[in-house]
Design a protein around this nucleic acid. Sequence first.
RNA 1: GCCCUUGUAGCUCAGUGGAUAGAGCGAUCGCCUCCUAAGCGAUAGGUCGUAGGUCCGAUUCCUACCAAGGGCACCA
Length: 608
Amino acid sequence: MREKAWEVVGLNEHEVPSLRRQVETAVSDAISQALPELAGADPVVRRSEHADFQANAALALAKRARRKPADLAASVADALRRDIGTDTDTDADTGTPVASVTVSGPGFINLVASDTALWRQVAARLASRHLGVGTPQQGRRTVVDYSGPNIAKEMHVGHLRTTIIGDCLSRVLGFLGAEVLRQNHLGDWGTQFGMLIEYLDEHPDVAWHHDELSDGTSTVSALNTLYRAARAVFDADPDFADRARRRVVALQAGDEASVTRWREIVAESEFAFSEIYQRLGVLLTAADSAGESFYNPWLPEVVGELTQAGIAVESDGALCVFSAEITGPDGEPVPLMVRKTDGGFGYDTTDLATIRYRIRDLKADRILYVVDARQALHFQLIFEAARRAGWLTDDADVTHVSYGTVLGPDGRPFKTRSGDTVKLMDLLDTAVGRAREVVTEKAHDLDPAELDQIAEQAGIGAVKYADLSTSRTKDYTFDVDRMVSFSGNTGVYLQYAHTRICSILRKAGDASAPVDTTLAPHPAERALILALDAFGDTLTEVGQTLEPHRLCGYLYDLAKAFTDFYEACPVLSVAQPTRGNRVALCRLSAETLRRGLNLLGIAAPERM
RNA sequence: GCCCUUGUAGCUCAGUGGAUAGAGCGAUCGCCUCCUAAGCGAUAGGUCGUAGGUCCGAUUCCUACCAAGGGCACCA
């Protein structure tokens, strides 16, 4: 045996192919050898309950090969065994990762990875800067449109999913090498501002700037209240309603005083949003804002282009783009309304200007709209129109990353008892408050400041994990108690696993011992290594499917695998070289969990 | 009327063209001289909406139906 001990010297940039990929290659090669006419067929390698992996290719290929699946499997298995035979004479670095092959059932090929290969993966990932994860999204310029709160309105639970899912996808795609451009499509334009500006002007005494308000009241909260007051006056007082309408016209015409006041409202609102984003650990900043008003200057040009191309046509006094694919209840094509009868522009036009800008000016290769599923038809129409206009071509990939509605316990869209939506800040306060109770109760000699910080991290993490861990497309039932529960499959479970590892590593002292690849791993070690090794494959999948819940599921499985290891394999009390290998496993587990949590946008405290 | 999404354990949800469909919560019973018990083990709980079809094999793919939710012109 010429096994070399893997020394971790500085980090390299190497991608480390997973064992599963290596096994796929080995099985593919074996298929080519045993059955040249079937070369290139999918080896159908999966994780297995009966071995480390199983290859199901024989079952699928039997008909094409006109052989019994079991015979076919036996031939492929023989070819795989020949590789194992030669491996003892060659450098282990390039040999097959497979140690044994058996055929069972109707033609399943069960594959066990070699002990050496398992430990080699651990060492190689520890030595790599990105845990050996590759960059399949390298260089892909990806616009991620998410969050999109409305100016002068409070963010509520309805904004949670778009904000958190969009942020997670930004992080994952960025980690996989994409050039991510975050875009916050603020609702910062519309007739409601006329009313609000007029009201503020007529009541100069009311406080609403963030530096005038008492703690616990946000600018948007104050503006929200003022907006409702304005609305009430608008409905009750025809003279005020007239002045408000004139104010809309003035604002749209660029009247200086009105525009200044509008800018002030936008800036104050963005200040409030940034407080929420910071608390949530969301990467969005004011630099990512490109709201509806940003596209205003281009709307006439966009409409002109569509009209000139004959795509937009006059209908009942309005200007519309009629879908060639979809019809409405009357059997007629469904329109996008690019100019209303009164000459105004709605959000159809804004969204067309937006997609044109993202392709033409931002030069996006991929655009993701993280928006409520109810807008599916709208985006279908926008994408269709953009194609017909020639803005959107096959060079760009545009996806509506839709997600389900947040429902209350009654299965209806979520509202509080009073009929209002739940404010996002209130939800976060509740979650952090509950977390503080638990942290206080369990506190392991933490000072008050540390306790506060951990309560914050656990509470916010719980809310985010609850949202990210369920599949995107389904509606989901909002339940504060479940969201802020800290046992079972929750964000806290992952954080807790991480703190336990950190505790071991603190006590282990210098953790840079080399990995001994000749040791036979304990079953719990084997399971943990196989879980750790699948990190990159999981991320690649998330990058393709745009489904963060797969990452949550993976990290939960990983944390469970670590917990099993923790229960079964003492680290500090065993002798070398076992201790060194277990410390290495702890290090890789901690780094993988930390990185995984980071990609979910969840903090990974070292103690709790 | 047409289109989209969803029906899996009491509840909330994963899951896959393949071997015995999983997890958490809730319930019952256990486990801290031992690296953090926010943990672990065990028991209980299922005709994977219904009916057909494709397939060696379907909870997974296809069709129809049933049920729930959503969407389809001047609000965004």
